[in-house]
Design a binder for these strands. Structure first.
Lengths: 108, 108
DNA sequence: CGTGTAAGGAATTCTGACACG
DNA sequence: CGTGTAAGGAATTCTGACACG
């Protein structure tokens, strides 16, 4: 069930390419990182590396900012999303556990 | 039916990352290009850009070279592959055309 | 608050060539 | 043939700061 992160989530794109792909400036891209909206990895030399998912997220962020939403708000939205996700996973596991308790170790 | 090239085929990876991903040296990667086994795109500044498909192909090439196959041979193999592909497509289209001739413009 | 910019330095990439074998 | 390497230059990226508003 655990899908090994595929192409979409691999951090392999340098900031110059992200600039081309999104149309954003480096300044903007780095600023959104400073505001904790995006989390690139780093190469040994210190260059930022992004995934395709990051690229898509950046475009969503840019849209929201154009709509006048502040980075602080966007961050709160994203945290709420993550909490929802996490809660859902917990719930899934609980149900899974109850099923196991009732029906034993069979795969459900 | 024509799938817009997805993440896997987008040329967005610089040679340094390809080096990390494949374990090959830049010299090797550039040499395989010189031998027409791989075809990166270029950024405006002239830097090479590869896709995930390219990365996989590079690893296949590296394996064959380890097995003692020469780049020239590998190239011929690849061309044969492509011809097969192309022939299959032509055949598909011919059959498609015959079906259309018999059954009219309905989508098959 | 979000973004542009000039500044200086460090890491990255490029090409053409020589070397070995 | 396939690959390593030193060479010199150009493009890329990084950080911290000042500016505007």
């Amino acid at each position: 069930m655990k899908n090994d992160l595929s192409y979409k989530d691999k951090k392999v794109i340098t900031i110059g390419i992200v600039r081309e792909l999104t149309g954003l400036s480096d300044r903007q891209i780095r600023y959104y990182e400073e505001r904790k909206l995006i989390f690139p990895e780093r190469s040994l030399g210190g260059s930022r590396k992004y995934s395709f998912s990051d690229v898509e997220l950046l475009m969503e962020i840019a849209n929201k900012i154009e709509d006048g939403i502040q980075t602080h708000e966007i961050r709160k939205e994203m945290l709420r999303e993550q909490k929802k996700q996490s809660d859902a996973e917990v719930k899934t596991k609980m149900i899974q556990g109850q099923l196991n308790a009732h029906f034993g170790m069979r795969k459900v």
